[in-house]
């Protein structure tokens, strides 16, 4: 009857609809199933199943190099997340108070990292650090991650901020609150779901980054993705699968947490 319904039905009736859908989902999830499944394989040869074993997890979790890389990754991700979220929150509030023309310009400037090719950003950052003699390593990676995490943190915070009636701040001032009290009691709690979402996004983006970290790692700055890349340069061992599965698990937990937190806040 209605048009929308008609198109919906015709799409479903398309002969290859089921097949195409199945292929898309297979392409997305079969590699993951493969990685997770073979992480429990006792065989040293990755592609031939021999039996169930947790040896590779023990192997990975007791490997000093991996632990060092993991600690590096977490240090970078935690600090970059905190810095980028604080900056993004300030930016979001600042943008709200700017004149329209300046706001558009500032917004494009802040969002540019989303479209700058990462390789260009990585080379540029490396050149800059070498130029000013900033030592490569964890600190350098943290600074670079902070820079490119800001737009990711800013998006949900700004979306949240725009949904707040501006009169709410005026009402708080009218009821006797100073600037700082308004920020602490009104602005921050209202933004919290956006800040949590932004922080989790920034954390995952940072934890996941390979290219920039690889360029800036120097001697002691190997992060987990950089380490994994080193592992597979030789051969794909079941250890890589185990490590990847652990990363996947961490991502799923973080995303689930963010979902629960943002839902409860509403």
């Amino acid at each position: 009857m209605s048009r929308a319904r008609g198109t919906g039905e015709s799409l479903k009736n398309f002969p290859l609809f089921g097949l195409v859908s199945a292929l898309v989902f297979a392409f997305l999830y079969v590699p993951l199933v493969f990685v997770v499944g073979y992480s429990f394989n006792s065989n040293r040869v990755v592609t031939i199943w021999k039996g169930f074993s947790l040896d590779w997890y023990v192997d990975v979790l007791t490997n000093d190099d991996i632990q060092r890389a993991l600690m590096n990754s977490l240090r970078v991700a935690v600090v970059a997340t905190i810095l980028s979220v604080v900056l993004a929150t300030g930016l979001a509030i600042g943008l709200l108070r700017m004149a329209r023309s300046g706001r558009t310009f500032a917004w494009s400037l802040i969002m540019a990292p989303l479209i700058i090719p990462e390789i260009v950003f990585a080379i540029g950052t490396l050149a800059l650090f070498v130029q000013v003699r900033f030592p490569l390593g964890v600190e350098a990676i943290t600074l670079a991650h902070t820079a490119f995490c800001i737009p990711f943190a800013l998006l949900p915070i700004r979306a949240r901020l725009r949904g707040v009636d501006l009169a709410v701040y005026e009402a708080a001032a009218d009821l006797g609150a100073h600037e700082w009290t308004i920020f602490r009691r009104i602005t921050l709690p209202l933004l919290m779901p956006g800040i949590v979402a932004g922080a989790l996004l920034a954390f995952i983006i940072s934890l996941d980054d390979f290219l920039v970290s690889y360029f800036l790692a120097g001697a002691g700055g190997t992060t987990l993705p950089v380490y994994i890349f080193g592992m597979i340069r030789n051969a794909i061992t079941p250890g890589v699968n185990a490590l990847s599965t652990l990363l996947l698990l961490a991502s799923v937990i973080i995303v689930t947490l963010s979902y629960i937190i943002t839902r409860r806040k509403r």
Binding site: D165, A167, V168, E170, A171, A172, D174, L175, I186, P189, L190, K265
Partner: peptide, 12 residues
Amino acid sequence: NTVFQSYALFPH
């Protein structure tokens, strides 16, 4: 004190 047109209640 003011009663705002949009009420401006604190939603949280």
